[in-house]
Design a protein around this nucleic acid. Structure first.
Lengths: 137, 137
DNA sequence: CTGCATCCTCTTAGATACTG
DNA sequence: CAGTATCTAAGAGGATGCAG
């Protein structure tokens, strides 16, 4: 049942899994897809996260190197302190970003990608490759 | 400069590109990232699309097979006609979904993934794999 | 059956001011 | 420096009615 893959199927090698989005594709969900399951699906959560206003950009800047809070605030044009905080907290909650506090005066806080965060860059890269492929149409 | 890759970097092989998100990571954007460029970036657009409320689910159902409008409306629990229409139109605009009208009475409309839409399933699958990896933590 | 137009609500995000 | 609190504005999404 669990060979490591899941979620969305490869075009020519789809297969079942515990997650709802996958189930629909694997043919396990012939009828209606319960809203609760779709909302609870971790893949759904992941794309929602990436899709909100600032997450991708913050992720990209952190992929470059670790940043201080105000450093990010300066580089992300147009973001408010409130939204930067919220975005970073959400990334922390998903263990994509690690927060390190330096007990100096004034206090310094550094944000950096976790190992999991860096691993995300791989599928994200694949997605970006798809995006630019055949831009011509 | 252009080896086919772009956008988001592989952890150990990042490189520059024309797109803003990529540029930031490739080290080409040392300072502030212009909001306009981030908003215009096709990768940004793609993740926003996938991240909205119904797109992923509709995509997954269409990956299974082509659907009629009302067929989708029945299978996607909780979606309104308005949002199903909007979601499908957006997918059409991005050439991920093709719309075919059968001039019968009453009229029938079939939605199916385009080739580009099917190709999207590959990076999406990679993302799903990442999601379920080390759920334990 | 498929879908657009209208209205209305609720969530999200920006502005501003203030604190350890 | 690195946030939190509050208020407001904008937009996404839902309900309903009508039309080709």
């Amino acid at each position: 049942m669990s060979d490591g893959n899941t979620g969305v199927p490869h075009p020519d090698a789809p297969h079942p899994d515990a997650h709802m989005v996958a189930a629909a594709v694997g043919g396990l969900m012939p009828g209606r897809v319960p809203a609760a399951e779709y909302e609870a699906c971790p893949v759904t959560h992941a794309v929602r996260m990436l899709g909100d206003k600032w997450t991708l950009l913050v992720l990209m800047l952190l992929a470059e190197r670790a940043h201080r809070f105000n450093e990010l605030h300066r580089r992300v044009d147009g973001i408010s302190q409130r939204m930067l905080t919220r975005t970073l907290r959400a990334l922390e909650d998903d263990r994509l970003v690690a927060r390190t506090v330096f007990p100096t005066v004034p206090p310094g806080v550094e944000y950096d990608l976790t190992e999991r965060g860096r691993e995300l860059l791989v599928p994200l890269s694949a997605l970006a490759d798809w995006v630019v492929k055949d831009r011509a149409a």
